[in-house]
Write a protein that binds this DNA or RNA. Structure first.
Lengths: 207, 207
DNA sequence: ATATAATGCGAGCATACGCTCGCTTTTCCA
DNA sequence: TGGAAAAGCGAGCGTATGCTCGCATTATAT
Protein backbone atom coordinates (compact mmCIF):
# COMPACT_ATOMS: atom_id res chain seq x y z
CA UNK A 1 0.00 0.00 0.00
CA UNK A 2 1.33 3.42 -0.85
CA UNK A 3 2.68 5.32 2.12
CA UNK A 4 1.49 8.56 0.59
CA UNK A 5 -0.52 10.36 3.23
CA UNK A 6 -3.85 11.78 2.13
CA UNK A 7 -2.28 15.08 1.24
CA UNK A 8 -3.29 16.83 -1.90
CA UNK A 9 -1.91 14.76 -4.74
CA UNK A 10 0.70 17.19 -5.95
CA UNK A 11 -0.34 16.88 -9.49
CA UNK A 12 -2.72 14.01 -10.11
CA UNK A 13 -3.57 10.40 -9.48
CA UNK A 14 -6.41 10.10 -11.89
CA UNK A 15 -8.21 6.82 -11.82
CA UNK A 16 -11.88 7.45 -12.34
CA UNK A 17 -14.09 10.46 -12.96
CA UNK A 18 -11.19 12.75 -12.06
CA UNK A 19 -9.88 11.97 -15.50
CA UNK A 20 -13.08 13.33 -16.96
CA UNK A 21 -12.72 16.43 -14.80
CA UNK A 22 -9.24 17.08 -16.09
CA UNK A 23 -10.37 16.58 -19.66
CA UNK A 24 -13.32 18.90 -19.18
CA UNK A 25 -11.02 21.57 -17.79
CA UNK A 26 -8.55 21.37 -20.65
CA UNK A 27 -11.37 21.33 -23.17
CA UNK A 28 -13.06 24.32 -21.53
CA UNK A 29 -9.80 26.23 -21.54
CA UNK A 30 -9.36 25.56 -25.24
CA UNK A 31 -12.92 26.64 -25.96
CA UNK A 32 -12.60 29.90 -24.07
CA UNK A 33 -9.23 30.67 -25.60
CA UNK A 34 -10.66 30.13 -29.06
CA UNK A 35 -13.89 31.98 -28.58
CA UNK A 36 -12.97 34.83 -26.25
CA UNK A 37 -9.20 35.04 -26.11
CA UNK A 38 -6.70 34.81 -23.32
CA UNK A 39 -7.95 37.70 -21.16
CA UNK A 40 -11.37 36.17 -20.74
CA UNK A 41 -9.92 32.87 -19.64
CA UNK A 42 -10.12 33.40 -15.90
CA UNK A 43 -9.88 30.36 -13.69
CA UNK A 44 -13.39 30.92 -12.37
CA UNK A 45 -14.76 31.06 -15.87
CA UNK A 46 -12.84 28.00 -16.98
CA UNK A 47 -14.19 26.04 -14.04
CA UNK A 48 -17.70 27.28 -14.73
CA UNK A 49 -17.57 26.33 -18.40
CA UNK A 50 -16.09 22.96 -17.52
CA UNK A 51 -18.97 22.40 -15.10
CA UNK A 52 -16.53 22.04 -12.25
CA UNK A 53 -15.64 24.10 -9.19
CA UNK A 54 -12.54 26.26 -8.90
CA UNK A 55 -11.43 24.11 -6.02
CA UNK A 56 -11.37 21.03 -8.22
CA UNK A 57 -9.53 22.96 -10.88
CA UNK A 58 -6.73 23.72 -8.46
CA UNK A 59 -6.50 20.11 -7.41
CA UNK A 60 -5.23 19.22 -10.84
CA UNK A 61 -3.63 22.38 -12.13
CA UNK A 62 -1.33 24.41 -9.92
CA UNK A 63 -1.96 27.59 -11.87
CA UNK A 64 -3.75 29.11 -14.77
CA UNK A 65 -0.59 28.83 -16.86
CA UNK A 66 -0.54 25.09 -16.27
CA UNK A 67 -3.94 24.87 -17.92
CA UNK A 68 -2.87 26.81 -20.95
CA UNK A 69 0.28 24.73 -21.10
CA UNK A 70 -1.83 21.59 -21.13
CA UNK A 71 -3.84 22.93 -24.05
CA UNK A 72 -0.67 23.81 -25.91
CA UNK A 73 0.74 20.36 -25.31
CA UNK A 74 -2.40 18.67 -26.51
CA UNK A 75 -2.51 20.78 -29.63
CA UNK A 76 1.16 20.27 -30.41
CA UNK A 77 0.83 16.56 -29.97
CA UNK A 78 -2.04 16.49 -32.39
CA UNK A 79 -0.12 18.41 -35.02
CA UNK A 80 3.07 16.46 -34.51
CA UNK A 81 1.10 13.29 -35.06
CA UNK A 82 -0.14 14.55 -38.38
CA UNK A 83 3.29 15.70 -39.46
CA UNK A 84 5.01 12.49 -38.44
CA UNK A 85 2.48 10.40 -40.28
CA UNK A 86 2.77 12.53 -43.38
CA UNK A 87 6.53 12.38 -43.40
CA UNK A 88 6.46 8.63 -43.00
CA UNK A 89 4.05 8.22 -45.90
CA UNK A 90 6.23 10.43 -48.00
CA UNK A 91 9.59 8.86 -47.25
CA UNK A 92 9.82 6.94 -50.51
CA UNK A 93 8.38 9.57 -52.81
CA UNK A 94 10.42 11.85 -55.04
CA UNK A 95 10.82 15.43 -53.94
CA UNK A 96 8.03 17.01 -55.92
CA UNK A 97 5.41 14.51 -54.82
CA UNK A 98 6.64 14.68 -51.26
CA UNK A 99 6.60 18.44 -51.02
CA UNK A 100 3.13 18.65 -52.49
CA UNK A 101 1.85 16.21 -49.92
CA UNK A 102 3.56 18.02 -47.07
CA UNK A 103 2.18 21.40 -48.04
CA UNK A 104 -1.31 19.95 -48.30
CA UNK A 105 -1.03 18.37 -44.90
CA UNK A 106 0.39 21.54 -43.38
CA UNK A 107 -2.56 23.61 -44.57
CA UNK A 108 -4.99 20.98 -43.37
CA UNK A 109 -3.35 20.85 -39.96
CA UNK A 110 -3.69 24.60 -39.62
CA UNK A 111 -7.29 24.47 -40.71
CA UNK A 112 -8.33 22.23 -37.83
CA UNK A 113 -8.59 25.17 -35.48
CA UNK A 114 -6.96 28.32 -36.81
CA UNK A 115 -8.11 30.54 -33.98
CA UNK A 116 -6.77 28.26 -31.28
CA UNK A 117 -3.55 28.02 -33.20
CA UNK A 118 -3.24 31.77 -33.23
CA UNK A 119 -4.07 32.30 -29.57
CA UNK A 120 -1.68 29.58 -28.52
CA UNK A 121 1.10 31.01 -30.64
CA UNK A 122 0.57 34.26 -28.78
CA UNK A 123 0.57 32.69 -25.36
CA UNK A 124 3.60 30.48 -25.74
CA UNK A 125 6.13 33.06 -24.59
CA UNK A 126 3.99 33.76 -21.52
CA UNK A 127 3.59 30.19 -20.40
CA UNK A 128 7.27 29.46 -20.55
CA UNK A 129 6.52 26.68 -22.99
CA UNK A 130 9.05 28.08 -25.38
CA UNK A 131 11.42 25.21 -24.70
CA UNK A 132 8.81 22.61 -25.59
CA UNK A 133 7.87 24.38 -28.76
CA UNK A 134 11.48 24.62 -29.72
CA UNK A 135 11.79 20.89 -29.20
CA UNK A 136 8.77 20.51 -31.42
CA UNK A 137 10.43 22.62 -34.10
CA UNK A 138 13.64 20.72 -33.80
CA UNK A 139 11.83 17.47 -34.37
CA UNK A 140 10.25 18.77 -37.55
CA UNK A 141 13.61 20.09 -38.63
CA UNK A 142 15.23 16.71 -38.00
CA UNK A 143 12.54 14.78 -39.83
CA UNK A 144 12.73 17.01 -42.88
CA UNK A 145 16.50 16.99 -42.76
CA UNK A 146 16.52 13.20 -42.79
CA UNK A 147 14.13 13.04 -45.68
CA UNK A 148 16.16 15.53 -47.72
CA UNK A 149 19.32 13.57 -47.00
CA UNK A 150 17.78 10.44 -48.42
CA UNK A 151 16.87 12.32 -51.59
CA UNK A 152 20.13 14.11 -52.04
CA UNK A 153 20.67 12.74 -55.51
CA UNK A 154 17.64 14.63 -56.81
CA UNK A 155 19.02 17.87 -55.46
CA UNK A 156 21.72 20.35 -56.31
CA UNK A 157 24.76 20.65 -54.09
CA UNK A 158 23.53 22.46 -51.01
CA UNK A 159 23.97 22.79 -47.26
CA UNK A 160 21.22 20.56 -45.90
CA UNK A 161 20.75 22.50 -42.68
CA UNK A 162 20.23 25.74 -44.50
CA UNK A 163 17.98 24.09 -47.03
CA UNK A 164 15.85 22.55 -44.31
CA UNK A 165 15.54 25.87 -42.55
CA UNK A 166 14.51 27.66 -45.72
CA UNK A 167 12.01 25.00 -46.80
CA UNK A 168 10.35 24.64 -43.43
CA UNK A 169 10.14 28.40 -43.00
CA UNK A 170 8.65 28.90 -46.42
CA UNK A 171 6.02 26.21 -46.06
CA UNK A 172 5.14 27.29 -42.55
CA UNK A 173 4.77 30.89 -43.65
CA UNK A 174 2.50 30.24 -46.58
CA UNK A 175 0.25 27.97 -44.55
CA UNK A 176 0.21 30.40 -41.64
CA UNK A 177 -0.62 33.38 -43.78
CA UNK A 178 -3.09 31.43 -45.84
CA UNK A 179 -5.08 30.25 -42.88
CA UNK A 180 -4.71 33.17 -40.47
CA UNK A 181 -4.56 36.29 -42.59
CA UNK A 182 -6.66 34.98 -45.41
CA UNK A 183 -9.46 34.30 -42.93
CA UNK A 184 -11.81 31.45 -43.77
CA UNK A 185 -12.74 32.60 -47.22
CA UNK A 186 -10.62 29.95 -48.84
CA UNK A 187 -12.09 28.32 -51.90
CA UNK A 188 -10.89 24.82 -52.54
CA UNK A 189 -9.55 26.09 -55.81
CA UNK A 190 -7.46 28.72 -54.09
CA UNK A 191 -6.05 26.13 -51.73
CA UNK A 192 -5.06 23.96 -54.68
CA UNK A 193 -3.37 26.89 -56.38
CA UNK A 194 -1.42 27.74 -53.27
CA UNK A 195 -0.35 24.15 -52.80
CA UNK A 196 0.83 24.08 -56.39
CA UNK A 197 2.73 27.34 -56.13
CA UNK A 198 4.34 26.55 -52.82
CA UNK A 199 5.44 23.20 -54.17
CA UNK A 200 6.98 24.95 -57.12
CA UNK A 201 8.73 27.43 -54.83
CA UNK A 202 10.30 24.75 -52.70
CA UNK A 203 11.06 22.18 -55.38
CA UNK A 204 12.55 24.83 -57.64
CA UNK A 205 14.78 25.87 -54.80
CA UNK A 206 16.02 22.41 -53.98
CA UNK A 207 17.24 21.51 -57.45
CA UNK B 1 -9.94 82.58 -28.82
CA UNK B 2 -11.03 79.01 -28.78
CA UNK B 3 -14.34 78.44 -27.03
CA UNK B 4 -13.05 75.19 -25.65
CA UNK B 5 -13.52 75.36 -21.93
CA UNK B 6 -10.56 74.29 -19.82
CA UNK B 7 -11.79 70.74 -19.82
CA UNK B 8 -9.40 67.91 -20.16
CA UNK B 9 -8.09 67.99 -23.72
CA UNK B 10 -9.68 64.82 -24.98
CA UNK B 11 -6.53 63.58 -26.52
CA UNK B 12 -3.82 66.18 -26.70
CA UNK B 13 -2.80 69.74 -27.42
CA UNK B 14 0.88 69.30 -27.09
CA UNK B 15 2.91 72.41 -27.41
CA UNK B 16 5.78 72.30 -24.98
CA UNK B 17 7.07 69.82 -22.43
CA UNK B 18 3.86 67.82 -22.76
CA UNK B 19 5.34 66.53 -25.98
CA UNK B 20 8.28 65.21 -24.02
CA UNK B 21 5.90 63.58 -21.56
CA UNK B 22 4.08 61.78 -24.30
CA UNK B 23 7.35 60.65 -25.82
CA UNK B 24 8.62 59.44 -22.49
CA UNK B 25 5.44 57.45 -21.97
CA UNK B 26 5.59 55.76 -25.34
CA UNK B 27 9.27 55.06 -24.90
CA UNK B 28 8.73 53.64 -21.42
CA UNK B 29 5.96 51.41 -22.72
CA UNK B 30 8.22 50.10 -25.44
CA UNK B 31 11.01 49.45 -22.97
CA UNK B 32 8.80 47.57 -20.55
CA UNK B 33 7.21 45.55 -23.32
CA UNK B 34 10.63 44.57 -24.58
CA UNK B 35 12.22 43.81 -21.29
CA UNK B 36 9.41 42.39 -19.20
CA UNK B 37 6.54 41.58 -21.54
CA UNK B 38 2.95 42.70 -21.74
CA UNK B 39 1.78 41.54 -18.30
CA UNK B 40 4.31 43.68 -16.51
CA UNK B 41 3.28 46.76 -18.42
CA UNK B 42 0.83 48.20 -15.91
CA UNK B 43 -0.10 51.82 -16.23
CA UNK B 44 1.43 52.60 -12.86
CA UNK B 45 4.68 51.02 -13.87
CA UNK B 46 4.75 52.73 -17.23
CA UNK B 47 4.23 56.08 -15.58
CA UNK B 48 6.93 55.34 -13.04
CA UNK B 49 9.48 54.30 -15.66
CA UNK B 50 8.59 57.34 -17.73
CA UNK B 51 9.19 59.52 -14.69
CA UNK B 52 5.64 60.78 -14.86
CA UNK B 53 2.54 60.37 -12.74
CA UNK B 54 -0.39 58.13 -13.65
CA UNK B 55 -2.57 61.18 -13.76
CA UNK B 56 -0.47 62.70 -16.50
CA UNK B 57 -0.49 59.44 -18.35
CA UNK B 58 -4.25 59.51 -18.50
CA UNK B 59 -4.26 63.04 -19.76
CA UNK B 60 -2.75 61.85 -23.00
CA UNK B 61 -3.77 58.25 -23.31
CA UNK B 62 -7.36 57.20 -22.61
CA UNK B 63 -6.35 53.63 -21.81
CA UNK B 64 -3.51 51.23 -21.55
CA UNK B 65 -4.34 49.86 -24.98
CA UNK B 66 -3.92 53.33 -26.44
CA UNK B 67 -0.35 53.32 -25.23
CA UNK B 68 0.43 49.99 -26.76
CA UNK B 69 -1.26 51.10 -29.94
CA UNK B 70 1.00 54.14 -30.03
CA UNK B 71 4.04 51.93 -29.72
CA UNK B 72 2.79 49.70 -32.50
CA UNK B 73 2.16 52.68 -34.73
CA UNK B 74 5.59 54.11 -34.12
CA UNK B 75 7.25 50.80 -34.84
CA UNK B 76 5.22 50.17 -37.97
CA UNK B 77 5.97 53.64 -39.28
CA UNK B 78 9.65 53.02 -38.78
CA UNK B 79 9.59 49.74 -40.66
CA UNK B 80 7.38 51.04 -43.44
CA UNK B 81 9.85 53.86 -43.97
CA UNK B 82 12.64 51.39 -44.44
CA UNK B 83 10.64 49.21 -46.77
CA UNK B 84 9.40 52.10 -48.89
CA UNK B 85 12.89 53.47 -49.28
CA UNK B 86 14.28 50.09 -50.22
CA UNK B 87 11.59 49.46 -52.78
CA UNK B 88 12.17 52.84 -54.33
CA UNK B 89 15.90 52.25 -54.60
CA UNK B 90 15.24 48.92 -56.19
CA UNK B 91 12.66 49.94 -58.74
CA UNK B 92 15.04 49.89 -61.70
CA UNK B 93 17.04 46.84 -60.76
CA UNK B 94 16.55 43.40 -62.28
CA UNK B 95 14.77 40.82 -60.18
CA UNK B 96 17.76 39.07 -58.69
CA UNK B 97 19.46 42.26 -57.55
CA UNK B 98 16.20 43.62 -56.26
CA UNK B 99 15.27 40.56 -54.27
CA UNK B 100 18.69 40.36 -52.69
CA UNK B 101 18.45 43.95 -51.58
CA UNK B 102 14.94 43.46 -50.20
CA UNK B 103 15.86 40.40 -48.20
CA UNK B 104 18.86 42.20 -46.74
CA UNK B 105 16.75 45.15 -45.75
CA UNK B 106 14.06 42.93 -44.28
CA UNK B 107 16.54 41.19 -42.02
CA UNK B 108 18.04 44.48 -40.97
CA UNK B 109 14.64 45.94 -40.18
CA UNK B 110 13.87 42.96 -37.97
CA UNK B 111 17.18 43.25 -36.23
CA UNK B 112 16.50 46.76 -34.96
CA UNK B 113 14.49 45.42 -32.05
CA UNK B 114 13.54 41.78 -32.40
CA UNK B 115 12.00 41.46 -28.98
CA UNK B 116 9.74 44.44 -29.39
CA UNK B 117 8.75 43.09 -32.77
CA UNK B 118 7.74 39.82 -31.19
CA UNK B 119 5.79 41.30 -28.30
CA UNK B 120 3.96 43.69 -30.58
CA UNK B 121 3.06 40.90 -32.97
CA UNK B 122 1.48 39.16 -29.99
CA UNK B 123 -0.43 42.17 -28.80
CA UNK B 124 -1.86 43.31 -32.09
CA UNK B 125 -5.02 41.21 -31.87
CA UNK B 126 -5.66 42.57 -28.38
CA UNK B 127 -5.30 46.24 -29.18
CA UNK B 128 -7.70 46.13 -32.08
CA UNK B 129 -4.91 47.37 -34.28
CA UNK B 130 -5.48 44.52 -36.64
CA UNK B 131 -6.97 46.85 -39.23
CA UNK B 132 -3.94 49.10 -39.24
CA UNK B 133 -1.57 46.21 -39.55
CA UNK B 134 -3.59 44.82 -42.39
CA UNK B 135 -3.34 48.17 -44.11
CA UNK B 136 0.38 47.99 -43.53
CA UNK B 137 0.48 44.54 -45.11
CA UNK B 138 -1.63 45.67 -48.01
CA UNK B 139 0.76 48.50 -48.71
CA UNK B 140 3.71 46.14 -48.84
CA UNK B 141 1.70 43.81 -51.03
CA UNK B 142 0.83 46.66 -53.39
CA UNK B 143 4.39 47.95 -53.59
CA UNK B 144 5.78 44.52 -54.36
CA UNK B 145 2.99 43.83 -56.79
CA UNK B 146 3.79 47.03 -58.67
CA UNK B 147 7.45 46.20 -58.83
CA UNK B 148 6.81 42.71 -60.12
CA UNK B 149 4.48 44.06 -62.75
CA UNK B 150 7.19 46.34 -64.07
CA UNK B 151 9.52 43.38 -64.34
CA UNK B 152 7.11 40.99 -65.89
CA UNK B 153 9.28 40.29 -68.91
CA UNK B 154 11.91 38.68 -66.70
CA UNK B 155 9.36 36.32 -65.27
CA UNK B 156 7.46 33.26 -66.32
CA UNK B 157 3.73 33.46 -66.94
CA UNK B 158 2.22 33.71 -63.49
CA UNK B 159 -0.66 35.17 -61.48
CA UNK B 160 0.89 38.29 -59.97
CA UNK B 161 -1.31 38.32 -56.89
CA UNK B 162 -0.43 34.78 -56.00
CA UNK B 163 3.23 35.40 -56.76
CA UNK B 164 3.30 38.47 -54.54
CA UNK B 165 1.67 36.58 -51.71
CA UNK B 166 4.12 33.72 -51.97
CA UNK B 167 7.18 35.94 -52.23
CA UNK B 168 6.25 38.25 -49.40
CA UNK B 169 5.32 35.32 -47.18
CA UNK B 170 8.56 33.52 -47.91
CA UNK B 171 10.78 36.51 -47.28
CA UNK B 172 8.88 37.48 -44.17
CA UNK B 173 9.12 33.98 -42.79
CA UNK B 174 12.83 33.56 -43.29
CA UNK B 175 13.58 36.93 -41.73
CA UNK B 176 11.19 36.29 -38.89
CA UNK B 177 12.60 32.89 -38.10
CA UNK B 178 16.13 34.04 -38.60
CA UNK B 179 15.86 36.88 -36.15
CA UNK B 180 13.42 35.48 -33.62
CA UNK B 181 14.13 31.78 -33.42
CA UNK B 182 17.77 31.98 -34.24
CA UNK B 183 18.27 34.38 -31.35
CA UNK B 184 21.13 36.85 -31.68
CA UNK B 185 23.84 34.35 -32.45
CA UNK B 186 23.92 35.36 -36.07
CA UNK B 187 27.31 35.57 -37.63
CA UNK B 188 27.58 37.98 -40.52
CA UNK B 189 28.51 35.04 -42.64
CA UNK B 190 25.32 33.22 -41.74
CA UNK B 191 23.27 36.27 -42.60
CA UNK B 192 24.94 36.47 -45.99
CA UNK B 193 24.25 32.81 -46.63
CA UNK B 194 20.61 33.21 -45.72
CA UNK B 195 20.25 36.26 -47.93
CA UNK B 196 21.80 34.32 -50.77
CA UNK B 197 19.58 31.30 -50.29
CA UNK B 198 16.40 33.26 -49.85
CA UNK B 199 17.18 35.22 -52.98
CA UNK B 200 17.66 31.96 -54.82
CA UNK B 201 14.37 30.65 -53.45
CA UNK B 202 12.37 33.64 -54.59
CA UNK B 203 14.13 34.33 -57.88
CA UNK B 204 14.01 30.68 -58.85
CA UNK B 205 10.30 30.73 -58.19
CA UNK B 206 9.58 33.82 -60.25
CA UNK B 207 11.20 32.64 -63.45
C1' DA C 1 -22.30 -1.33 7.19
C1' DT C 2 -18.74 1.37 8.16
C1' DA C 3 -14.34 3.46 7.81
C1' DT C 4 -11.14 5.72 4.88
C1' DA C 5 -9.55 7.83 1.06
C1' DA C 6 -10.62 10.31 -3.24
C1' DT C 7 -12.96 13.78 -5.37
C1' DG C 8 -15.70 17.90 -5.55
C1' DC C 9 -17.45 22.23 -3.81
C1' DG C 10 -17.72 27.51 -3.61
C1' DA C 11 -17.65 31.54 -0.37
C1' DG C 12 -14.27 34.56 0.34
C1' DC C 13 -9.26 36.42 1.02
C1' DA C 14 -5.47 38.95 -0.75
C1' DT C 15 -3.81 41.41 -4.26
C1' DA C 16 -2.98 44.01 -8.26
C1' DC C 17 -4.64 46.67 -11.74
C1' DG C 18 -6.97 50.34 -14.45
C1' DC C 19 -8.38 54.62 -13.74
C1' DT C 20 -10.42 59.25 -11.34
C1' DC C 21 -10.29 63.53 -9.00
C1' DG C 22 -9.00 67.34 -6.36
C1' DC C 23 -5.10 69.69 -5.89
C1' DT C 24 -0.29 71.91 -6.85
C1' DT C 25 3.21 73.60 -10.00
C1' DT C 26 4.69 75.54 -14.31
C1' DT C 27 4.07 78.21 -18.46
C1' DC C 28 2.25 81.82 -21.10
C1' DC C 29 1.07 86.41 -22.19
C1' DA C 30 -1.55 90.93 -21.64
C1' DT D 1 3.46 91.18 -12.59
C1' DG D 2 -0.72 88.82 -12.10
C1' DG D 3 -3.92 85.70 -13.40
C1' DA D 4 -5.61 82.03 -16.25
C1' DA D 5 -4.76 77.94 -18.71
C1' DA D 6 -1.81 73.93 -19.31
C1' DA D 7 0.60 70.36 -17.37
C1' DG D 8 1.65 67.42 -13.63
C1' DC D 9 0.75 64.99 -9.41
C1' DG D 10 -0.43 60.66 -6.55
C1' DA D 11 -3.53 58.81 -2.85
C1' DG D 12 -7.03 55.91 -3.29
C1' DC D 13 -11.63 53.82 -5.40
C1' DG D 14 -13.84 49.98 -7.48
C1' DT D 15 -13.28 45.83 -9.42
C1' DA D 16 -11.73 41.52 -11.13
C1' DT D 17 -8.68 37.79 -10.73
C1' DG D 18 -5.87 33.98 -8.95
C1' DC D 19 -6.14 31.01 -5.50
C1' DT D 20 -7.11 28.74 -0.48
C1' DC D 21 -9.48 26.19 2.91
C1' DG D 22 -12.86 23.88 5.49
C1' DC D 23 -16.47 21.11 4.53
C1' DA D 24 -19.75 17.94 1.70
C1' DT D 25 -20.28 14.14 -1.41
C1' DT D 26 -18.96 9.92 -3.68
C1' DA D 27 -16.18 5.75 -4.30
C1' DT D 28 -13.62 1.78 -2.37
C1' DA D 29 -12.45 -1.91 0.64
C1' DT D 30 -13.13 -4.82 4.35
Amino acid sequence: MARTPPTKPRKNALQARSRATVDALVEATARILTRDGFEKASTNRIAEVAGVSVGSLYQYFPSKEALVAAVIERHNEEIMGIVRTALAEVADLPIDKAVRKLVTVAIEAHRINPKLHRVLAEQIPRTGQLKDVEAFNREIHTLVHTYLESRRKEMRKIDLDVATFICVSAIEAVTHNTVLHGAEMLSEKMVRTLVEETTRLVVGYLR
